[in-house]
Simulated assay, not measured.
Amino acid sequence: MNSTLNMWRKLSPYPAGKWTFSKAVCLKAPYFATIKPCFEELDVGYAVVRIKEHRAIHNHIGSVHAIAMCNLAEICAGVVSMASLPEGMRWIPAGMTVRYLGRAKGVLRGYATMREIVPGEKGSVPVIVEVKNEAGEVVFDAEIAIHVSPMK
């Protein structure tokens, strides 16, 4: 099991474990802290990350800014990619296509899914992220291409 998934599985059962894991991710990549993410679920091929609407991520019409939702999609895709990598593999984002589908208000959750990565694989792997509001409506979606390859 890789170190990201191992850390999640060790921390998440404890009362502040999910919060601690989320803070650790933000220490590694500080820009993610702007949206105050909280991981709710993480496994090979699947992640759920929650954010709450707050003034610092508002746009001019009082809803969650489009780029804050891009940031949510990126943290979902990045961490599920790290958690899903077989030993001896690496990844890097290669591109992102997004759609803004509705006004984003309140508590939002990003749901990331990806297929299994084959050891030794080289090429592009899509990660699909849907951002849903509290009513379960998809307000944003993204496809993030990650490039995977064996470590040298």
Rank of each mutant, 00 (worst) to 15 (best):
C38G: 11
A16Q: 14
H54A: 11
I51G: 04
L27Y: 13
K36S: 11
K28S: 13
P13V: 08
V25H: 04
Y31W: 15
E41Y: 01
V25E: 04
V49R: 00
R55F: 15
A47G: 07
H58A: 10
A29G: 01
I51H: 01
R55I: 10
G45L: 07
C26Y: 05
I51R: 04
S12E: 09
I51W: 06
Y14R: 14
A56S: 13
G45M: 05
I51Y: 06
R50T: 14
F32H: 12
K28D: 09
L42K: 03
P30E: 09
A56H: 12
A24I: 15
A16M: 15
I35G: 00
F32A: 04
I35A: 03
V48E: 13
F39N: 06
Y31P: 07
P37E: 03
P13A: 08
P37W: 06
K18L: 04
T20Q: 10
A47M: 04
S22M: 05
F39R: 01
K18W: 04
A29R: 09
V25R: 00
L42E: 04
R50P: 02
P30G: 02
K18A: 09
V48K: 14
A47K: 05
A33M: 13
F39E: 02
P15Q: 05
V48D: 01
C26F: 05
W19P: 01
E41Q: 15
L42F: 06
H54V: 06
T20R: 09
L42I: 06
A24N: 08
T34P: 00
V49T: 11
K36A: 12
A56C: 08
C38T: 15
E41A: 12
C38W: 06
V49C: 10
R50K: 15
L42D: 00
E53V: 06
T34M: 14
F39T: 00
A29S: 15
L11S: 00
C38P: 00
H58E: 10
A16C: 12
C38K: 14
K52H: 13
L42A: 04
C26Q: 07
S22D: 00
A24P: 04
E41P: 03
T20Y: 05
D43Y: 09
G45N: 09
F32R: 02
A47S: 14
C26A: 08
L27M: 15
V25Q: 07
T34E: 08
V25S: 03
